[in-house]
Design a protein around this nucleic acid. Sequence first.
DNA 1: ATCGGCCGATAAGACGTTTTAACGGATCGC
DNA 2: GCGATCCGTTAAAACGTCTTATCGGCCGAT
Lengths: 343, 343
Amino acid sequence: MGTVSIREVAARAGVSPGTISNVLNRPERVAPETRERVMRAIRELGFVRHGSASTLRAGHSRTIGLSVIDIGNPFFTDVAAGVEEAASELGYAVILGNSAGSRDKEERNLLVLAEQRVRGVLITPSDEDPARLDALRERGISVVLVDHPAHRPDQCAVAVNDLAGGQMAVSHLLSLGARRIGYVTGPRSIRQCVERGQGAAQAASAAGLDPETATTTVEVPAMTAREGQRAAASLLASGLPDAVFCANDLLAVGFLRELLRAGVRVPRDVALIGYDDIDFAAASAVSLSSVRQPTHRLGRIATELLLDECDNPDTHVHQQVMFQPELVVRESTVGRTQSQEGE
Amino acid sequence: MGTVSIREVAARAGVSPGTISNVLNRPERVAPETRERVMRAIRELGFVRHGSASTLRAGHSRTIGLSVIDIGNPFFTDVAAGVEEAASELGYAVILGNSAGSRDKEERNLLVLAEQRVRGVLITPSDEDPARLDALRERGISVVLVDHPAHRPDQCAVAVNDLAGGQMAVSHLLSLGARRIGYVTGPRSIRQCVERGQGAAQAASAAGLDPETATTTVEVPAMTAREGQRAAASLLASGLPDAVFCANDLLAVGFLRELLRAGVRVPRDVALIGYDDIDFAAASAVSLSSVRQPTHRLGRIATELLLDECDNPDTHVHQQVMFQPELVVRESTVGRTQSQEGE
DNA sequence: ATCGGCCGATAAGACGTTTTAACGGATCGC
DNA sequence: GCGATCCGTTAAAACGTCTTATCGGCCGAT
């Protein structure tokens, strides 16, 4: 009942259905007077275009898909906010999929997106296999990689230089006089973790240290605060380095908590730096130094690239955007006299 | 090119298109042998059902809309994760809308959802005006309110008892011996803030205190860590109460940070409790006591109610589910000898 | 006055699926 | 062995929009 179609609007405005479609899609082709009459009829009847019918006939929709690895991680949340913002401005709807790190779930999500005939997909892939994404492209669904380098040259991708980020973090620690560095990282299957670690090793080499002996790596199965705590406990038992670099802020937050609980002073006894610069990093009791990534922009740019690729397939040039991260220095590495006195 | 239709599958399997549809939608009506042949053809051709065509003909889609106030807030992120999980299990896609607190943006999002002919909408409304939601219902789109009481009896809603939560928090503070309580809250336009404050006042009354004199309320314009810090600074200047209740954990985290920076010991000098029990609450340097809400379940139950309403309109009974929050006691109210010694 | 061109509007078919009614063949009861 | 019944399949008509080709009318140019 609630459904009023283009035909009824046409009847009310005294024109043909085709004209309604023109008003909706190419208003310039219709006489101003007619246009106004149609707009009024639309308003009066409360007409809302049937997106599915439109998609079916036109061959493409006004929706994009967003597939992330962990919607609970503030990093992805910020990216999602940027995506939603940009898409909304351009009149696109965003279909959200959370792969939760599972290859299977990701695959199911991509199937749903294909069924919905989304215009394109933004994805932070959960593994390095490009097969499924290539399959999407063959279906005519554009794909833009988020926080991941392109699999192929004819593809857009938006990422942040994790190698540089790792270098930055460790160079900073070394500049404070640290000589033995701990690196707390997530699973090796996560590309970001590996690259940040490589950057860290390069920074050590550049400072004339042997990465093998100067660095202690602790690998934990998930990038959560809980695992960060566990990593700290293990390092407390085996002997603390001068400074610790955690592969993300959630790890760092947990790590910090365990250190403080054990009476270790940060940064006087151990300097600590995280990665991502999530909001909480600045708010923790000893505020966390971190490596900031332009998360919100990451989502926004990726969306703009995707929609440009969809809307202007001829003029579109594929781009691999690589952002540079930024060092954010706070108390957990340089300390504050005031803060130390307060405790 | 990439698009293969039901017709081609039918040709390959040697049956009519109608049979393909039956295999897809009512497999039990199709002979096992035929079914198997069709399934094989589907696999071999890489057929993917065209959701829009399906929606158009069937009159309903397999998507729901989710409209939240702030996708950056961990509370909503957790809710969204629950929604996505439940929807995904039932084969529904979730279209995400972030109103960012703007009435306007919310309205635009709802229009997009109406165009997409979503089956239903989950929404945490950004204001108290039910008009737009009623308009959706008249269009045949079911609405379930999330973290908000129902506007009308014939509507599902899922909420958490904020009054009880406020009582819990303040009763706990009083049980520790506190007599002067601070309440740090967001804007009065946010229903949750008001109700938690009322619960707090009731707890004070129940303990024989006069809420007017025993309570100091600080209202800040946003529920962020930054504003929490500012609130702490203002209370530090005007004189600290015995204990402070913050309307959410983000406020509490910022508040705590400012106290520690000023050398105030928590909880020895001031006890502090937040609300929501976000992950970070347990991980902050002095772990935060809080009032836990079943966020993930909130999203899940809301989704299940919505889809039940959609799929079984006859047997469905509208429900107003009210969860009870749960007090989580941590160091910021009861302290830990160990923790105090460590500092 | 006639014609070509242009602008604005229309008629009708197509998009891919679902669904209803109808159909043929086999089974069952008698 | 005959009519009734049932099962599995099919043909064809929708769903609401977009689009292509067409048409009518108006203007200016000849």
